[in-house]
Design a protein around this nucleic acid. Structure first.
Lengths: 178, 178
DNA sequence: TGCCTTTCCGAACGAGGTGTTCAGAAACGA
DNA sequence: TCGTTTCTGAACACCTCGTTCGGAAAGGCA
């Protein structure tokens, strides 16, 4: 049943926020969800499976594509806003407490997007461009995790501004050289 | 004995490179090190303790301080070079296989250093500066991990160049505004 | 209502990991 | 040679995992 799946997913999210992903055991989950042990394994392969099953619900990972092809990194602000709206779920899945697994998924999706934008803006695919993408993604994910882990209380607008200010000058300079 | 400690540390490094940190068990370690179980617990509290005990040997985490106060982020190139020299140990401790624990230590040390440099270069301590620091550290650690995990084969000089090109324009602009 | 199918329950199991304890062996220094 | 430090490895209680299985509960359908 779909209800059972949801109970298990929500139990894991709640427990991650309390103890951190690594400390949560399957036994914890089934007790919290009030579900039989065999029922758990009928729906999910293991703990990680539950974690990933929550990932689809993170709307900020699937932002609206290129509305305005003129502006670079237009995803930034909406993403930070989505993150704030889904604060609870994001904190559980993407922060330090989440064990880093979901974080890597986010990095990969973002890297693909950033690379697309840079190429669309005139960059040529090359090893140097990949390094630039890595820097941009690193900066963005750094800000994201700082906010998720409560190291900053900045608003989405401020995070967006900091990201653009830090990264856009270097990116523009790199694109002009091509 | 110091020899025993070293045997255990080296066993963990070797095993991380083979299986990844999470998959390594204490039993694995003592078998590889050819050491009694009780001996292990006489020297280390647990697996994580062994991991952290290796951290002091990472020379790139303790770079020579501010030789030339004029140049921003002078640590970058020497760090990438140190990383290459200690490739094996760095791969085990700082890469994805290392479980991310040591990676966070590196982030913290680097963040403190970057913040110091920015303030020495005329930046004023503020929330905005902290966000900038986060971006810079994110970019650097992103490059570092990309190299560690074999996503790029760039040389230390190339990594350094990519880091500076991506980050310095934004940093200079931010410093001028103050 | 009665029947049948799907779903869930929870106890039990074996396998494997953890960290501790302890008596004895080995190495070492004086 | 003697005494101290260090290591050994078996045994321990405890926890977690993922599976199995008989039976209970829920739900559709006639």
């Amino acid at each position: 049943m779909r209800r059972t799946r949801r109970l298990i997913q929500e139990a894991l999210v709640a427990l991650i926020l309390e103890k951190g992903y690594d400390a949560v055991t399957v036994t914890d989950i089934i007790e919290r969800a009030d579900v039989g042990r065999s029922t758990f394994y009928a729906h999910f392969a293991d703990k990680q499976d539950v974690l990933f099953s929550n990932l689809d619900q993170l709307t900020f990972l699937h932002p609206a594509p290129r509305d305005d092809p003129g502006e670079l990194f237009a995803f930034s602000r909406p993403m930070f806003e989505h993150v704030r709206e889904q604060e609870r779920l994001v904190r559980a899945l993407m922060g330090r407490r989440g064990g880093g697994l979901a974080h890597r998924r986010g990095e990969q999706l973002l890297a693909a997007r950033v690379k697309d934008e840079l190429i669309a803006a005139g960059g040529r695919a090359s090893a140097a461009l990949d390094l630039l993408v890595t820097c941009v993604v690193g900066a963005f994910m750094g800000l994201l995790r700082a906010w998720i882990d409560g190291e900053t209380t900045a608003s989405p607008a401020e995070l967006d501004a900091a990201f653009r200010a830090a990264v856009l000058p270097g990116v523009r300079a790199a694109l002009k050289e091509t």
